[in-house]
Amino acid sequence: MKTIQNGIINENPVFVLLLGLCSTLAITTRFENAYVMGICVTVVLIVSNFIISCIHKLIPTSVKTPVYIIIIATLVTILELLLQYYAKDIYDVFGIYLPLIVVNCIILGRALAVASKQNIWKSTLDGIGIGIGYTLALMAVATVREVLGNNTITFMDSLSTLTGYRSMYRVFPENNFIPMQFLVSPAGAFLVVGILMAIFNAIRRGGKHESN
C-alpha cells in the first residue's frame, strides 16, 4: 500500500520526477485520451517491471539497457497491434505517441531504478503505483485543458466503437462562458502542466518551504 501511495504522491512521475512529459503534453487535449494513455502506460509498466524483475539476474550489466528497451518495445508493439484491431479510432488519435511509449522515460527509468533491484512483488507494486500516479496526473491536466479550453468533457467518444456507448458533456452554459482555445494549443499544454506542477509542489511541501 505504501509503495502505491509513494508512486502517486511522493514520486508522482509527472509532477515530481518529471518523466514521460512528451505524452503528458501531447495527448491531454481530451479527458478520454488521457485515461486511455494512462491505462496503456500502466499496463506496459506493470508487465515490464514484472518481467524485468524476474530475469534481471540473468542479464549482464553491460547490456542491461538495450535488453530492457527490447522488452519494452516488444510490449508496446503488442499493445499497438491490440489497439489497432480493437480501438482503431483511439489508435489514430494517438498517432506516433503510442509507439513513443517505448522511449517514455518512466518505463525505462523504473526498470533501471526499481525492477532491476527489488523483488518481483515489490517492483510490480511499484509499477501499479507509478502507473496510477501517471494516469491521475494526465487526467488532471486533461480536465483543465478540455474544460477551460473547449468547454466540454469527454468520457467516451473514440472508444465508443468498442463499448457502444458515448458520453460527452458541456460543462458551462454556452452563452456566458468563452472557451480559452489557447489552452488546447501546444503553448497551453506547457502552461497548464507548469502551473499544476507548481500547485502540486506547494501542496506536497506544505509549510516546509522555509527550509529551502
Binding site: 494549443s185 507548481a198 500547485i199
Partner: peptide, 23 residues
C-alpha cells in the same frame, strides 16, 4: 522566483511563451 514555481514549473511556463512565439 516564488518557491513553488522554482525549477521545472517556471521552465515549463517559459516554454509555453516560447511556443506561442514560435507559432
Amino acid at each position: 522566483i516564488p518557491y513553488c514555481f522554482k525549477g521545472y514549473p517556471i521552465a515549463l511556463i517559459t516554454a509555453s511563451i516560447m511556443a506561442l512565439l514560435f507559432a
